[in-house]
Each structure stands twice: as C-alpha cells, then as structure tokens.
C-alpha cells in the first residue's frame, strides 16, 4: 500500500474544532500505516484566539512543526486565519478554506478592520484553492459544529483517500450521539464539486 507523506496545518479560531479535526486526521493516517506527529498549543489560545495544529505524516519524521513554506495543505476554518497562515503554504500547495468570517475583537470594537474582499483574494492566493461554505453545509446536516468535518471531507477527497477509512477515523474520535451528523457533514465535503 502506498502510504501518504504530507505536511499540513489546521488553522482557525479557538473553539472551532481544529483539535478534533487533527485527531481524526491522525487516526486515519495511523491506520494507513504512516507515522504521525501532531503538535498543538493549548491554554490561553483556547479563549477565542488564533489557533493552529501542525500535522506531519510520513515514514520518518523528526520535527513535529510545519514551517514557513513547508505546508502542502492548509485547512482553515476561517478566512482571516487562512490569510494569516498563508506564508506557511508551499508554492504549489493547496488551501482548503471555510468561507466563514469571525471578527476578532479589535475588529468588533472598530480599532481594526477585517481585510476587504478576502474571499476573492484568497481564491487567487495559492496554486490550488478550495473554498466552501462549510458552516452552511454543517447547518444543513443539523450540526453547526461539524464545519470542521466538511473541510476534512474535502481534504480526504483531495488526497484520493477512501471514504470508509475516514468514517472509521471519525468513529474513533467522536461520541456516538454526534457521530451520524458528523459523518453526514464529512460526506457533504467529500462530495463537493469544485470548479477551479
């Protein structure tokens, strides 16, 4: 079996489920026989701050961290965070972005402004950009907190992985009562067609 080697960043806002998404990716990769390192920062950043999870998958990994220009994928649960972490994307990397905008406090109070037209600017920002209204899709699946799973669906399809393997990874990490809606959200992302 061909095992995947990749480096990715999961970025978003504290509370959006990047840590859970990281767990699911790690479970999937382990099952594929790859080695995995997952690095995240807890604590202060949980309180609505900018959050990032580093994931490296391969056969021999030393540093658990993704560096500037080192990520093959960036999965962003929020547009401004995608923009913030863009320097970490490889030149030929893929950006998977949720269209949601969450205003940071300096924007809410009027001290700073949210960058204008970020959607169209992101669209032109990388070799491959997959933008999706994951929150809307998650709401349709009956679970607004499953926007992260929609994005995982897009990622799984993008790397040509089998859907059933991911369902297994979801099962390992999500409690029974939430599982069905999360799988629905994952599938919706997996089936999404992109015109690029």
């Amino acid at each position: 079996m061909m095992t995947l080697e990749t480096t990715l960043l999961l970025v978003g806002v504290g509370g959006q489920g990047t840590i859970l998404a990281g767990k699911v990716i790690a479970s999937w990769a382990l099952k594929q026989g790859s080695l995995v390192k997952v690095s995240e920062v807890h604590g202060m950043s949980q309180r609505g701050g900018s959050v990032v999870t580093h994931i490296r998958i391969g056969q021999e990994i030393f540093s658990p961290l993704v560096e500037r220009g080192g990520a093959e994928f960036i999965i962003a649960t929020e547009k401004l965070e995608a923009w913030r972490w863009l320097p970490y994307l490889q030149q030929n990397g893929t950006l998977i972005v949720n269209e949601q905008e969450i205003y940071p406090l300096p924007v809410l109070t009027g001290a700073r402004s949210y960058p204008h037209a970020l959607g169209s600017r992101l669209q032109k920002s990388a070799a491959r950009v997959l933008m999706i209204d994951a929150l809307k899709i998650a709401l349709r699946c009956g679970e607004p907190r499953a926007a992260n799973m929609v994005l995982l669906g897009v990622f799984a399809k993008e790397i040509g992985a089998k859907r059933v393997d991911w369902h297994q990874a979801l099962k390992q990490n999500i409690r029974e009562q939430y599982l069905e809606k999360n799988i629905l959200a994952f599938n919706a992302g997996y089936e999404q067609k992109f015109t690029i």
């Binding site: 806002v13 504290g14 202060m44 950043s45 949980q46 309180r47 609505g48 701050g49 900018s50 401004l80 965070e81 923009w83 913030r84 940071p104 406090l105 300096p106 924007v107 700073r112 402004s113 949210y114 960058p115």
Partner: peptide, 9 residues
C-alpha cells in the same frame, strides 16, 4: 491582518 488575541468568553 488584525491580530486575534484571546478574549474573555
């Protein structure tokens, strides 16, 4: 890019 500091919930 505006910063996104942690905030009181």
């Amino acid at each position: 890019i505006p910063p996104r500091p942690p905030v009181l919930c």
